[in-house]
Amino acid sequence: MVRRRAVVAAFGPLLLSGVSSGCTATATAPETAAGAEELRAAVDRWAAAVRSGDLAGVELASWSYRITRARQDGDGRATVRAELGYRIAGYDSGPVTTERALRLARRDGRWQVTSDRPAQGAAQQLWDQGALQVVRGRRSLVLGSGQDPERLRAVAATADRAVPAVSAAWAGPWPGRVVVLVPGSLEGMGALLGAPADRHRGIAAVTTGRAGGGPDAPADRVVVNPEAYTGLSGVGQDMVLTHETAHVATRTHTSAATPMWLSEGFADWAAYRGTAHPAGQAAPALRDAVRAGLAPAGLPSDGDFAFTGDAEALARAYEGGWLACALIADRWGEPELRAFYRAVGAHRRREAREQAVSQALREVLGTTPEEFTARWRGYVRERLG
């Protein structure tokens, strides 16, 4: 895991302006109120410097800290833990938030921030891994670290193709743009996600975001695994980024009540929509199971999508979800598939999932869970047998 003072290196020399960051402070004993105010003022100045200088060419709409803990360590040094909230102009309607640990030193009679790093237990941001590289596509913003610039331009071109493909599949309002992060390694990807790198070794990309977020939610981030993604063909890379972009488009209509067979299946359906991939080629793991007489008895559960190391089982789950969504589009129509997705996501609680799916099947598709599952099993055998 690489930890760099990229923000300090980029913004330390800047003249500090007086723009307020909206910071609040809670100081721990024996900190005095006056001491807390001085630390808060220093963090405010730091936030204003970053905001006015942008982030390595990325225009920031906001950058502020909410201090949750402050401590003077003696010898003219202090430590602050704070929640950073920032927005990229043109992409984030709400702030991305993360926990940061700031070190300060007292110089020339006032406190100054000397380092800004992820707090203990918090995920890294891309700038923590080195200097940011920025590529702007027509519909995408690609941020890299330690990457070949040509590769980043290729990712932007692929993301630019993914956006209109997803817009056609979703046929509903969404921002129509995507932010893609490309770290320098699998380990860098794991650090961005706050998870062990091995958990994502075979995964080409993932999307982070807040399910069911409203109009003020921050933009999702598509995080690319540079090792797995690079090993894909051009068609495979198109499929991956279209799949992930579909998650971005559907995020506000995806809730805790949305089963993974629907959210992942719709994303795959959007990626395959308009292509000429035969079902057997698109779903080889499930095809082999069907031909071996091991067709699934029911729709994939959320547990089937866990990254447990059983790649074949994971593939069958994704393929089963894709065919469930393909069935709805083929049998009832694409508008009904989109309406079904929205109807399920309108229920917000995970405990309401069974009710949400059952109600949407009845009200949108005019069927029952039992009838739909039976029809899906027949569709799987028909397409893959």
Rank of each mutant, 00 (worst) to 15 (best):
R45T: 01
R287L: 08
R107H: 02
A219D: 11
G333C: 10
S358P: 07
A168L: 06
A283I: 08
A282K: 05
Q237P: 04
L314A: 08
G280H: 07
R5D: 08
T79V: 14
G12R: 12
A168E: 13
V80M: 09
P300Y: 11
M239R: 14
A295F: 07
D73Y: 00
W376L: 14
F340N: 09
V8F: 05
P226R: 06
E59P: 01
V223C: 04
Y229P: 04
Q125I: 03
T368V: 06
T252W: 01
R273S: 14
D288N: 11
D304I: 03
A168N: 03
L55P: 01
G209T: 10
R3S: 10
E227W: 00
R362K: 12
S52N: 13
T24Q: 12
C325S: 13
L152V: 05
S167A: 15
V2M: 05
E150F: 00
L361M: 14
G345F: 05
G35M: 05
P164E: 05
T308K: 04
G209Q: 07
G309F: 07
G345K: 02
L60V: 08
T28P: 00
A356M: 06
L323P: 12
L192C: 11
T275W: 02
L323A: 10
S301A: 15
V206W: 06
Y65G: 12
R273K: 02
R103L: 08
A343N: 07
G90C: 08
A329K: 07
L132P: 04
A25N: 06
V206C: 03
T242E: 03
L60M: 08
G333A: 07
A267S: 12
R291L: 15
T158F: 02
L365P: 06
S52D: 14
L126E: 05
V182A: 09
A156P: 09
A89N: 11
Q124A: 15
V179L: 13
P30K: 03
T308G: 14
R110W: 01
N225A: 09
G212I: 10
F11K: 11
Q281A: 13
V19D: 08
A49E: 06
P183K: 08
S64L: 03
P95M: 06
A42Y: 03
A34P: 00
P226G: 09
G176E: 03
G190P: 09
R316Y: 09
T26W: 11
R153C: 00
E187C: 01
V2K: 10
A283G: 04
H277E: 12
G280K: 12
A317G: 09
L102W: 02
T207N: 07
G18H: 11
I67T: 12
D108N: 09
G172S: 12
G188V: 08
R201C: 03
A162C: 11
S93E: 14
A346V: 01
